[in-house]
Design a binder for these strands. Structure first.
Lengths: 184, 184
DNA sequence: CTGAACATGTAACACGTTACATGATTGA
DNA sequence: TCAATCATGTAACGTGTTACATGTTCAG
């Protein structure tokens, strides 16, 4: 149920339309909480019905501008620090590792090496983002953006190191097996 | 659509009933791909209908033992190395960081410190698991289990370091603000 | 003989994705 | 004028969660 809180969070920075929020979801929140148009319009309707947001103006082309209410702000703050974060631990990439013994060592090594490459790529992307947004905006807002970015940088670095280490372990086993075969 | 592959992966190690698989999901796969009873029985039925698994024996209490078919094995191997892992990036914990400017610095720091503590706790749990399963089972199977465990150890360590670093940054801002206030 | 563990199944609901459907405004 | 962009909404479908429902077998 966090789409609701993502929407409230974005609206806490100022009024916006569904369309506006959608852009934000696609750009800045895509790496953390992707949302589709369909989902967002539905949620905004529900939030309005429950009084957590309110329509403040209707612009051209049927545009509806939403504003967060006091009640919505209270709900956002409550969620932020009082509700236990539910670590959604489903991990496709790691699930595969468990079954990697079903393919030969060469293919398994290839899989791990690709993971390492992907991590390097993502890390570079994030470094690019950091370069492009240096020191703009106010204290707190900027700091928390930085902190989130740093999380990405550290995690992709750790993922790269791990994948490289794992690929090397598989390669070592391959060598060992090859030695065995030659000795027979 | 990975529950299907998780089930195929478990069955690739040998025949088992839905009930058996459920235990495995609850114990060894819980951290990577949780599944409920309801979901699993449904999926096994579908897999059987599509010929990726087959019922090999019916035991007491209506127990149905499933075995993976050649077709199922082929699908599993295909998925393992040929299908791009879809990185499910939804991250509740990080989403909150983006909106942390909505609570005071003290509460924000508390949130980050709690994240660090949680990471330490998880890291310790995993260290416990590693201790308890040292050097059992065969080469490849053991190795991939190790590799997955190592991922957990490295990620929880990185998460702890990051959360501690972030909490320190927020504390520094608090100090700065307090100095300001005193100077006025 | 009784409670725990074994064993499977269905129904209702929540959430997310994709696709369809529609129309208004603006700038080149 | 016409294409791009703005702007919202709904329907169908797939997946995941919780709860309900039922019955068997084994060990003490």
């Amino acid at each position: 149920m966090s789409l609701r809180h993502a929407a409230l969070g974005l609206l806490s920075a100022g009024p916006a339309s569904g369309y506006d929020l959608l852009k934000t979801f696609e750009i800045s929140l895509a790496e953390v909480w992707p949302a589709t148009q369909s989902q967002l319009y539905g949620e905004l309707g529900r939030l309005a019905k429950e009084g957590l947001v309110r329509v403040v103006s209707e612009g051209p082309r049927g545009r509806k501008e939403y504003e967060i209410t006091e009640e919505g702000l209270a709900e956002l703050r409550h969620w932020l620090v009082e509700v236990a974060p539910n670590l959604s631990r489903r991990n496709d990439m790691l699930l595969r590792v468990f079954f990697l013994d079903q393919v030969d060592a060469d293919a398994a090594r290839g899989y791990l090496e690709r993971l390492a490459q992907q991590a390097v790529h993502e890390h570079d992307q994030l470094r690019g983002v950091r370069e492009s947004v240096i020191s703009q905006g106010d204290d707190a807002l900027r700091m928390y953006g930085d902190i989130a970015l740093e999380w990405g940088l550290r995690l992709t670095a750790a993922q790269r190191d791990w994948a490289e280490w794992a690929a090397a372990r598989v390669a070592a086993l391959e060598q060992q097996k090859a030695g065995h075969a030659a000795a027979e």
